[in-house]
Design a protein around this nucleic acid. Structure first.
Lengths: 142, 142
DNA sequence: CCTTGACTTAGAGCGCACTCGAACTCGTAA
DNA sequence: TTACGAGTTCGAGTGCGCTCTAAGTCAAGG
């Protein structure tokens, strides 16, 4: 599989695939006679897994850590597992936080229930917004 | 309340508060005789609300949109509401996505159940990782 | 033979959201 | 009076994760 097809199939751009290889997220790909990257379909599973880590907010530096553990092969399983478990906890915490925000958002939206009614939430508590008075740099200009 | 106290109470840094004012996320604050910002406690509710939007992944440009609608006052309620509802939907979708990823993560971690066992997931499907062969720029170097 | 288009590399540039530094001004306490 | 600490402005710098450009190579089709 050439980089173009992998791009189509993975949803990444060819640019991003090369970038990932450069930083070590993807293994250095085999090249054909004319130096073009030639991928095995198995790379897709790894890219999908990276995508999930990314979706769940793992920074690239941590994915690199995981990738490096994987490189080092057997003997690193416990560490890999620990890394994923820590990440799972942080994702769970984030989901909880998002759900809490959703409740607040529901309340807020509820405040707009009848568009024609006055607000009784945050919007009403701040008297009115002011803009920086243009050209008024200070009381006694110098 | 001076900017330092607001920083302590809001969790933002004074730098960030000034930055938010600069870009229009926070209203231009009243200044005392010596040009120092002097805040009313009501600003805290707004900052907390912004924090929730931020936590839920709303980009600053959208918060600005909301802030501008709020500035324009009555007559913009429907639009504000629509904005929040769209955002709520995107947050819900993201939560669903995260939960789906959590399931995969659980499976993956399950694969490490007994650290001493062989892997039968992604890690096992990629034969082995290769590194860029240093100094090997091409078959026929030039 | 020539064109086309998919690829190659190295490196620059971008958008976001801060974050910090420099140089300065105040008000207060010693 | 002087020193301190907390504030001010403007603008530059940072870290992240891409994203794109330039200039070149190559293989296949017309």
């Amino acid at each position: 599989m050439k980089i173009g097809e992998l791009a189509r199939r993975s949803g990444l751009t060819a640019h991003t695939i090369r970038y990932y290889e450069r930083i070590g997220l993807l293994p250095y790909a085999d090249r054909d006679r004319s130096s073009r990257r030639d991928y095995d379909a198995s790379i897709l599973a790894w890219i999908e897994f990276l995508g999930r880590l990314k979706t769940t907010g793992m920074p690239i530096r941590d994915m690199l850590l995981y990738a490096d553990l994987r490189d080092r092969g057997s003997g690193t399983e416990a560490e890999r597992r620990a890394l994923l478990e820590r990440h799972r906890e942080s994702v769970r915490a984030h989901v909880d936080e998002l759900n809490a925000c959703l409740l607040v958002l529901d309340t807020k939206i509820g405040g707009y229930a009848d568009t024609e009614q006055r607000m009784k939430d945050y919007d009403a508590t701040l008297p009115e917004r002011r803009r920086k008075p243009v050209g008024a740099r200070s009381a006694r200009a110098r």
